[in-house]
Structure formats: structure tokens, C-alpha cells
Design a protein around this nucleic acid. Structure first.
Length: 338
DNA sequence: AAAAACTGCAACCGCCAGATA
DNA sequence: CTATCTGGCGGTTGCAGTTTT
């Protein structure tokens, strides 16, 4: 009650730190280490409050800070972490070595937030911005900026004619995996679907053997009733931004209870009958969860009674893989014929 | 060239929880 | 048990540099 702010005392300096002040603080911390911040100003000869010293050290002087722009990988990670954690900047920063909560918060507010809004995504919920507030409405469509040539540089002559011709909607309650594009998604229409995933936000890094990853980390979920089938990651890109060149296949866990809304214009034959659904991708370019991929000739994706969805693809470009877990919500699903 | 608007970011503020007297 | 102190956190502000008018 009635507690004074730490900087209330008249003699304490405020505002930007001078190089001299930085030097004093750096010298002191280097020599004595981080301890009681309230005593630091006195011992270091600074006219600052302890809180200010702490902040200056954490956000600027700490030797392990990473400087410069955020990489694409960092940006992707922040987006995914924010989707799970919300504005818990300290927790997000803990996953990004060398970055501070303040830095990430600023980056979010000045850049990422605007980016998402430009894409028609609510930065708070990470869901498409809707015309109404009815949470029961599962299918939301967003029109994106017409920058098709950026995203599909090699197939401009066969661009989608309209969103109506492209979209295929269905609900999924157990997606099993989130695949997210590393570049911003700027064309076409998005549809949302529910997910509940067995893994919790683990990134694949280049130094992780994806096969070992599958076998080791998935085992703990196999008693939970989740179907833990995951893609063969050996041929997928790691998070370094390299591209997948080889033909590969993956199995996508699909809905436990699935329902679909078919669209006769779609290239997919997607039926609700008898619990068996099949999607055919015959050498087509399409997007899967924001990934720009091309299916192999004659490839058939099946969405069967067991709720499995298998698609063979090749020539995917620029994507990252995020297994997410213990998360119920909605995420974007995209199927585009190019 | 000058003023206004915009942007990025460092730093402050107030609140909270845990520790301590 | 209560009051106070301290560190940590997220929201916000204000400044300096840049871009636009």
C-alpha cells in the first residue's frame, strides 16, 4: 500500500542510457555478477534504480544477446508459440536463445501483428477474421491478396480462376500435424478446421534425426490413444530453409470424426459415404496447409475409415514442419489446384 | 527545404507473486 | 499474520530516426 515506484526518488536518472553508464554497469556485472539489483546502482556508481539497471542488462548489455533481424525460422517459431502461449513474451523468449522478451514483443507489435492482419488473420486468436462472432461457424473463408505469381512463379498460366473453384472444406478433429509455410501465404482462400494433436510444439532442427525423432518422441503418446503416424521426415526440409527436392510421401492423421462439405468444383473427390473418402491428386500443383506442393503423377490421397490421409508429393518448396500437441482449436487448411 | 506522419525500439509504469523481516 | 521488499512480467509511452507530403 502506498508503495513508491522505484524511480520516484528525485535524484535518479531516467531515459536513455549513456555509454558511460553502460560501461559502469557492464564493469560491475562482469566483476561481481548478477545479484541483488537494488544494490547495484550504489555499488556501480549509477544514479539509476535497480530495476532500470536490471532491464538495461537484460535487454541490452548481456553478452549472449543476438543482434539483428529475426530470421524466418525465428519468425515462424514466434508465430507458432504465440498461437499456443499468447502474449507470454517471457516464455516465448525462453525458446529463442539470445532474444529478449522485450525484443520479441516489439517485433510482434510492429511487424508480425500487422503481417497477420494483412493476411486476414486475427493476431489474437490466429484465426481468420470473420464477419460475425458465431463460434459455431467452422468454415471461414478469407480472400488473400492477389500475389499469385509470387507464390506460384512457375504456373502462372494455370492460375486458379476463382476461390469458389478452389476450395474444399471439411472438418477435422485430429490433425496430428501442423505443416506451415515459411513464407507468408498470400493467395487463395483459407478454410479452418479443428485440431487436436499428440505432440506439443517441437521443432525439427537440422541436427535432429527425424526418424529417431519419430520413434523416440512418439512412443510416449502411443498409450494415449492418439494415432501417432507421422510423415517420413527424412525427405522433408529441416528448419534451415532448404527445399525438398526428392519425392516423398507422408501420412496425415485425419479426423476421428470427420464430416465434409463437398464442393463440386474441386478437383478432389471427397465423399462422406461409408466412411471412406478419397482424394486424387494427379500431377497437380496444390497447397496443403499452406505448403506449395506438387503431387506425383497418379498419386492418390486416401482419407479412409481409419481417418488416414496419405498423399505423395514432390517439389515442395519452402516449408517447415511443426508438430503441435495438446491443442484444440482451429487451423487453416488449404487445397488449391493450380 | 520544412513540416507532418510514420516507424522501431528502448525504457518506464504498474501490477503481481514470492521472499523476507 | 502482516507489511514491505524485490524481481519479473506485460502493457504502454516517448523519443529519435526515417519517410512522406
Amino acid at each position: 500500500m502506498g508503495r513508491h515506484s522505484c524511480c520516484v526518488k528525485q535524484k535518479l536518472r531516467k531515459g536513455l542510457w549513456s555509454p558511460e553508464e553502460d560501461e559502469k554497469l557492464l564493469k560491475y556485472i562482469t566483476r561481481f555478477g548478477v545479484g541483488c539489483w537494488s544494490s547495484v546502482p550504489k555499488h556501480a556508481g549509477l544514479q539509476r534504480c535497480g530495476k532500470s539497471c536490471r532491464l538495461r542488462w537484460i535487454n541490452y548489455l548481456r553478452p549472449d544477446l543476438k543482434r539483428g533481424m529475426f530470421s524466418q525460422q525465428e519468425e515462424d517459431l514466434i508465430l507458432n508459440l504465440h498461437q499456443v502461449l499468447g502474449n507470454r513474451w517471457a516464455q516465448i523468449a525462453a525458446q529463442l536463445p539470445g532474444r529478449t522478451d522485450n525484443e520479441i514483443k516489439n517485433f510482434w507489435n510492429s511487424c508480425l501483428k500487422k503481417k497477420l492482419m494483412k493476411q486476414g488473420i486475427d493476431p489474437n486468436t490466429h484465426k481468420p477474421i470473420t464477419d460475425n462472432n458465431n463460434d459455431d461457424v467452422k468454415e471461414k473463408k478469407i480472400e488473400f491478396f492477389d500475389k499469385k505469381s509470387e507464390f506460384f512463379p512457375s504456373s502462372s498460366s494455370s492460375m486458379p480462376i476463382s476461390a469458389a473453384e478452389l476450395e474444399q472444406t471439411f472438418h477435422v478433429n485430429n490433425g496430428g500435424l501442423i505443416l506451415s509455410s515459411s513464407s507468408s501465404m498470400e493467395t487463395g482462400s483459407f478454410l479452418t478446421k479443428s485440431i487436436c494433436d499428440p505432440l506439443f510444439l517441437v521443432e525439427f532442427h537440422s541436427d535432429i534425426d527425424p526418424i529417431a525423432y519419430n520413434s523416440n518422441l512418439l512412443s510416449q503418446f502411443q498409450q494415449t490413444g492418439y494415432d501417432t503416424t507421422l510423415p517420413n521426415l527424412a525427405n522433408f526440409s529441416d528448419h534451415s530453409g532448404s527445399k525438398m527436392n526428392t519425392t516423398t510421401s507422408f501420412i496425415m492423421n485425419e479426423a476421428r470424426e470427420s464430416s465434409s462439405t463437398t464442393n463440386s468444383n474441386s478437383h478432389m473427390n471427397n465423399s462422406l459415404s461409408a466412411g471412406f473418402q478419397q482424394m486424387t491428386f494427379e500431377g497437380e500443383m496444390f497447397q496443403f496447409n499452406g505448403i506449395n506442393v506438387k503431387s506425383e503423377e497418379g498419386c492418390i490421397g486416401q482419407w479412409e475409415q481409419q481417418n488416414m490421409h496419405e498423399v505423395q508429393v514432390n517439389n515442395a518448396s519452402d516449408f517447415n514442419i511443426y508438430p503441435m500437441g495438446s491443442l484444440s482449436g482451429e487451423y487453416t487448411d488449404v487445397f488449391h489446384q493450380i
